[in-house]
Design a protein around this nucleic acid. Structure first.
Length: 794
DNA sequence: GAATGGCCCGGCTGC
DNA sequence: CGGGCCATTC
């Protein structure tokens, strides 16, 4: 329960339970809840006109402030809901905000514009597609699609991919787009790299020809509309769209403003150019997307751009214990440039932060398992627990450890479902049906499943199409009359058959529900039967994934209907591309594993922060990090720590196998920043073994490691405790439930067994040694040959 | 001309 | 560990 004065707009007594479908009315009708807002929160809610900057410290209730502010505008200020735009960082956050507002305001909340930058701009562009030389059925190209486009452009220009690596060229293009600069921007005149400019121009043309946008284009496109001018030769379509857009909203609110980039900020300025009712909320200490173009100077410099802006700081943290808040502040403190603010909490001291030294990544995973079990014993539900890491590559070992002891978990991000080959294939079909000009998709499916149209033929038809500034689909339509297409009669015939396949699919898909289109594509393209014919376990898994794809279409249909929208294939495809990792998070009773980046905006009772080692977190490759990069790593660590409500466990390993090599690691410098009175240091027996025995440590290479280990967590903690009993290998075994194997009897292939050291495993092979033995796979350890007498039934 | 298997290089974070 | 490229085989 929040304490503090409720002021002005927020003095209301309506009961929360009465929230429901109600018309608009005074705020007293609205269940703005018994919630009492503290003075700065109330001020941020009640301040109505003009620019408003809210510095919202971690856990200071900023989502609540935005939500209430919107409710206040609608209920008390008489603002029409469709004239309010709220920009959130994820689709999930948008959905939650919308749901909350519907509770407070009733069904009128459906008319609010709530969404991410990308989703909102996509919506604008579908309203005014002509203004950007696209049609309404445009598709959005994700990074791999973009890479395909730029690779092709570079090849067409005869640029070799060693001097012009597609990834880097693409990165340069994105950087320019984030600044709103096209290939013919005057600022590029001094750019001496003409081939690069050509590649950029060609990339843009290719996207336009494909009736496609990349992520940046969605924002840039809307800004272009808003900056259209009759003098600048813009079309009447563009001018009409401009007029509609710039007067569309009375109020614009932006969450996580610290992670906006230059073009997004420009968009916001343009959308509010007449009203100046721009409310931005964020925390410069939590700016973690610099590498993606985010510019923390947007929030730090907001007052310069809007000298009359009202500035409010929310500094009371309601989320975390005192120890967690103090540690977070200690981690962020060394950062050089920060907006001054004092985060504080009146919450309890809480339990000490456990810092655990593990021997290696598996030992660390075992610590994680142990901590999760302890938490479960203490009554913390699994959904209240999260495991964080800096890079996805760390997740596998953690995953195996959890699986081996049957702790349900979900992984956010990582190997993404929609990036699986079979899913991408089918999505490519669907996108072609929606937008046949999409060459990237056409190239993907033209010979998938194999239908005798090989690389050479594809290359030739693509070359002819590009020579005529046409798409492959258009070239195929003219197949019989194409001059300069030198393919034999057989491939030509197959191309014709493919064209008929696509035309047939397009004709039959009209009027069908998205899931029905999917089923039809699977059948008629021959994709399903090709997979079935393979008759392998892998093909079966792919078929299952495709079934799951159909499932996700149903989920989408339900969501769309909740928003009052008609489910369409376009809508589904857009959702697939613009979905953020956390959007698909399950509410089920599972432990959540994710990167710290994904964790932004979330909170958990128990957070396990793993891999706190120099070179992992702060992450660095060869080059030492620059100041800016180091500051960002620090902010990322701050985000990680501030996700925890009650308990925080921080682990680091002394050696880590990652990216194919084993490295000796020293504890992260950020660990050294934790205040001594907040932490409690532990060490696993295996880690201590390394320190004391140093058996397999070559000190001549390793003296840094030893020195840093004694120095880095400089806080002399209370006594160092054992994280585990000696001899316990941390993979827990339910001893009572298992029975030993007899000496004579060997477990059969495929049976599950328990080993005192390696835990649960599966028998792969029975081997003949002097004693009965098997080769078994133990998650987290790999394949091991073990004697049967050490095994128990699982 | 198409399909498949091996090999080498590069590898973060993500709308 | 995976994707892209090349060599080999059909």
């Amino acid at each position: 329960m929040w304490r503090g004065h409720a002021r002005s707009a927020c003095e209301t007594k309506a009961g929360e339970g009465e929230a429901g479908d109600r018309g608009m009315g005074g705020l007293n009708d609205v269940s703005m809840a018994q919630s009492e807002l503290n003075p700065p929160q109330a001020e941020a809610v009640a301040y109505v006109h003009g620019p408003l900057l809210v510095f919202a410290g971690a856990g200071s209730g900023k989502t609540r402030v935005i939500t209430y502010r919107i409710a206040n505008l609608v209920a008390n200020e008489g603002v029409m809901p469709w004239r309010i735009l709220a920009v959130t960082f994820t689709n999930k956050a948008a959905g939650e905000m919308r749901a909350r507002l519907e509770e407070m305001l009733g069904s009128v909340a459906r008319d609010l514009w709530v969404g991410t930058f990308h989703a909102t701009c996509a919506k604008f562009l579908r309203l005014y597609p002509e203004a950007t030389s696209r049609s309404k059925n445009f598709v959005i190209y994700d990074s791999s699609d973009q890479k395909a486009v730029i690779t092709r452009a570079l090849r067409d220009l005869g640029l070799d991919d060693r001097s012009y690596p597609p990834k880097q060229v693409l990165a340069r293009i994105h950087k320019l787009k984030q600044e709103g600069r096209g290939p013919h921007d005057p600022s590029l005149d001094k750019e001496r790299d003409k081939p690069f400019k050509d590649a950029y121009a060609r990339y843009e043309l290719a996207l336009q020809a494909a009736n496609a946008f990349d992520f940046e284009d969605l924002i840039v496109g809307v800004v272009r509309i808003l900056e259209a001018s009759a003098d600048g030769g813009d079309s009447t379509d563009a001018l009409r769209a401009k007029e509609a857009l710039e007067s569309k909203f009375d109020f614009v609110l932006v969450d996580e403003f610290q992670d906006t980039n230059a073009i997004q900020y420009r968009l916001l300025k343009r959308l509010t150019s007449t009203t100046r009712n721009l409310c931005v909320v964020g925390d410069d200490d939590q700016s973690i997307y610099r590498w993606r173009g985010a510019d923390v100077r947007n929030i730090r410099g907001f007052r310069r751009d809007y000298p009359d802006a009202k500035v409010i700081k929310l500094e009371q943290n309601y989320r975390s214990t005192k120890r967690i808040v103090a540690s977070a502040l200690a981690v962020i403190a060394p950062s050089r440039t920060r907006e001054p603010k004092e985060l504080w909490t009146s919450n309890v001291d809480g339990s000490p932060i456990r810092v655990i030294a593990a021997a290696d990544e598996r030992d660390e995973a075992a610590c994680v398992v142990r901590a999760i079990r302890d938490a479960a014993d203490a009554g913390i539900a699994r959904r209240e627990i999260a495991v964080f890491y800096r890079v996805h590559a760390q997740s596998r070992v953690l995953e195996e450890a959890l699986r081996s002891v049957n702790i349900p978990y979900q992984i956010i991000g990582g190997a993404k479902f929609y990036e699986r080959a079979e899913v991408k294939d089918i999505i490519a079909y669907l996108r072609v049906l929606v937008n046949p000009k999409s060459d990237v998709d056409m190239m993907r499916i033209i010979n998938t499943p194999a239908r005798g149209i090989g690389a050479t033929t594809v290359e030739r038809i693509a070359a002819v199409a590009s020579m005529r500034h046409a798409s492959i689909f258009e070239a195929l339509a003219n197949l019989e009359h194409l001059e300069g297409l030198s393919v034999g009669t057989a491939p030509r015939k197959r191309l014709g058959q493919f064209r008929e396949l696509i035309n047939g699919l397009i004709a039959e898909s009209t009027g069908l529900a998205p899931a029905e289109v999917l089923r039809m594509v699977l059948e008629k393209s021959g994709y399903r039967s090709a997979l079935k014919d393979e008759n392998t376990a892998e093909a079966d898994a792919r078929l299952e994934n495709l079934a799951e794809l159909e499932g996700s279409m149903h989920d989408y249909a339900v969501e769309a209907e909740a928003r009052g929208e008609e489910p369409t294939l376009e809508g589904f495809l857009e959702r697939v591309t613009l979905q953020s990792d956390t959007d698909s998070m399950s509410e089920a009773s599972k432990v959540t594993l994710m990167t710290v980046h994904s964790a932004k905006g979330l909170e958990y009772r128990l957070v396990l922060l793993t891999g706190m080692e120099e070179s992992i977190f702060p992450y660095r490759r060869q080059e030492p990090l620059g100041h800016e990069e180091m500051d960002e790593e620090r902010r990322l660590a701050y985000v990680a720590v501030t996700r925890a409500r009650e308990h925080l466990v921080v682990t680091h390993a002394k050696a880590r196998q990652i990216f194919g090599t084993t490295r000796l690691e020293v504890p992260s410098r950020f660990l050294g920043d934790f205040p001594a009175h907040c932490i409690e240091q532990h060490e696993t027996p295996a880690a201590r073994g390394l320190r004391e025995g140093g058996r397999w440590i070559d000190r001549s290479i390793n003296h840094d490691f030893v020195r840093d280990w004694t120095r880095a967590p400089k806080a002399a903690a209370p006594a160092v405790h054992d994280a585990h009993d000696p001899g316990d290998r941390y993979i827990e075994i339910d001893a009572e439930a298992s029975q030993p194997y007899d000496d004579v009897e060997s477990p059969a292939r495929g049976t599950n067994v328990l080993h005192p050291k390696f835990g649960r495993g599966e028998v792969l092979n029975v081997v003949h040694a002097s004693e009965p033995a098997v080769v078994a796979f133990f998650p987290g350890w790999g394949e091991k040959k073990v004697l049967v007498k050490f095994l128990k039934r699982a």
